[in-house]
Nucleic acid binder design. Structure first.
Lengths: 312, 312
DNA sequence: GCGCCATATACTCCGCCTGAGCAAAAGTCG
DNA sequence: CGACTTTTGCTCAGGCGGAGTATATGGCGC
């Protein structure tokens, strides 16, 4: 029988909820995963339409901003759960990953769907003060695994900002995940290959290669913050500068200087102050802002954001 | 009969030749296009392997650096030339675009393949002094077409750096091409839709949506220069700083300040000076440099490059 | 109303990066 | 040797970003 080609669509639908970045997950037989569906060339004119269609059917949540991430076509990646999408083990599955952003974490209609924090799957990516960061020295574990291999050590240094003049670059989430996969510090590495356990496992696993897709999405979103006004896709219509900053910090995964953030946001001209204020924090009331027209549209500049400058 | 799903692979193979950026093109019945082939799930384990396979067969050129660009799945995009890849008009074609870089523009074995300058297809993207830039005021033509529509004018301003504080951002090549397509300033717009001619047509057309894919590749490559050391994939083993600068300028499409370029490159630590020199320009001999280990690997920083600050 | 607290907002200061240009060095060519 | 070309070294000023201090404006307990 002929091996048919099947295209699957995966979505990382992200939002910010109670100051934490969350992603829409669906509970499947093998564990948690991203929403996905099969692309049917008969029914769907474009990928995006197909995506909106099945996400809305699966969760009753509408998609607003949508962006293509990457197309995964390697044989073997889908093996463990091929039957889920294709219904036929001999099919060859190619999957197209998408990133979608929502300004609200609305409750999904489906019981098996839920918003879950990024930090569940990537505890090491959240370096904000007071957050549950996995204090484990992952870079140290990796270096031990590298056993002096220079090329590997260089990759580790760049990915984790160890190294002499290196800095933690938040958008390298995928680099970090892939290193950890190779070093077998994540459960997927054991599931996909032999069952030899690594020293410690970090974060919760997802089915198939969904955690890899999520890492791709996180990195892409973080990078995009700096050159496109995507942060406003995660905010409501109106917000205080503190709320905006908390949204940015949630995505970036580290704290930033308050006064400088205000300065950079205000001079960028992406927001405008309204004449109303809110009093929600127990201190001085904050002015309410909204995004200007500049921050709309497919093109437009992003925010000038600082780099992480902590230790560890 | 069932509509089958077919995956096509397209490659933008770029190089720098005689100071100009070039792309490998293949002559087809309907005009020039990018090399492409059909992905066969039976034969190929990954997209990249398939890509290397058919490019080497079509042109006898090996691919070095390869990067996925985007997956195009909209129905209709492939209509005009569907039969080329599929051999069956009822198939649904999805195409995955790739960017590949070569340090040498080797002569392809196939007679129908040739290196052609980017500027053939995108004359407006080359703003270097003394180059054949199409002096036509494209932004003006676009604004005339926009007829006061604010949203459109804002897009034009951002794409072309017109607008008050806007600057020409070289990586927005796709934004510019898409606007021109919508305004029917490129031949493809007439071929794909009705035959109503626009005022002027710019650049040479390519078959299918290949010029769009090329625009995507140019934009991606230009952007990537700033944060990954990809420029060295386009250079030989050894080079002078002038040659390196000319390579960068060719890709960026504008001239940059010589002394500042030297400073930024040297402080970045991506190159190291050898103790040899060449005398090729009729002036003082230039030191030969080579890329350091830092510039290798999937990760690593890029060059700090200036922005275009010309007029027009 | 008054002191205290918490947060929002304003302003300052300084170092570094970057843009821009001058000038010297090291060759070729007539 | 002098004119010319290109490489290389250096300086200087403006601006942006990082970090901290100070002030404004509300609530709350008394």
């Amino acid at each position: 029988m002929e091996r048919r080609l099947v295209i699957g669509l995966n979505v990382v639908l992200a939002a910010v909820k109670d100051g934490d970045p969350v992603v829409l997950c669906v509970k499947r037989p093998g564990g948690w995963g991203l929403p996905f569906g099969r692309f049917d060339p008969e029914d769907h004119r474009t990928f995006e339409l197909a995506l909106r269609d099945f996400v809305e059917r699966q969760t009753a949540l509408p998609l607003e901003y949508v962006e293509q991430l990457y197309t995964f076509g390697d044989r073997g990646r889908e093996a463990p759960r091929a039957s889920l999408v294709s219904g036929d083990e001999t099919d060859r599955i190619v999957s197209v990953g998408y990133l979608a952003l929502s300004s609200e974490a609305l409750t999904p209609s489906l019981e098996s769907a839920a918003w879950r924090r990024w930090s569940t799957f990537f505890p090491w990516e959240d370096r904000r003060e007071g957050k549950v960061r996995s204090c484990a020295d992952i870079a140290g574990e990796l270096r031990q695994w590298a056993k002096g291999d220079e090329a590997l050590e260089s990759r580790i240094d760049i990915a984790f900002g160890t190294g002499d003049d290196g800095a933690w670059e938040e958008e390298r989430a995928l680099d970090r995940y892939e290193l950890m996969y190779e070093a077998r510090l994540v459960a997927e590495a054991h599931r996909d290959r032999d069952g030899v356990e690594g020293p410690v496992l970090h974060g919760e696993a997802m089915i198939s290669d969904h955690r890899r897709i999520l890492a791709t999405a996180i990195g892409r979103l973080r990078g995009k913050l700096r050159y496109r006004p995507v942060i406003f896709k995660l905010m409501g219509e109106e917000f205080t500068l503190r709320e905006l900053q908390e949204g940015v910090e949630a995505v970036l995964g580290f704290d930033i200087h308050k006064q400088n953030f205000r300065r950079s946001v205000e001079t960028a001209g992406l927001v405008e102050k309204t004449d109303t204020t809110v009093q929600a924090t127990g201190g001085r009331p904050a002015a309410i802002y909204r995004a200007t027209g500049l921050s709309d549209g497919p093109t437009a500049a992003g925010l000038a954001l600082p780099r992480y400058r902590g230790t560890l």
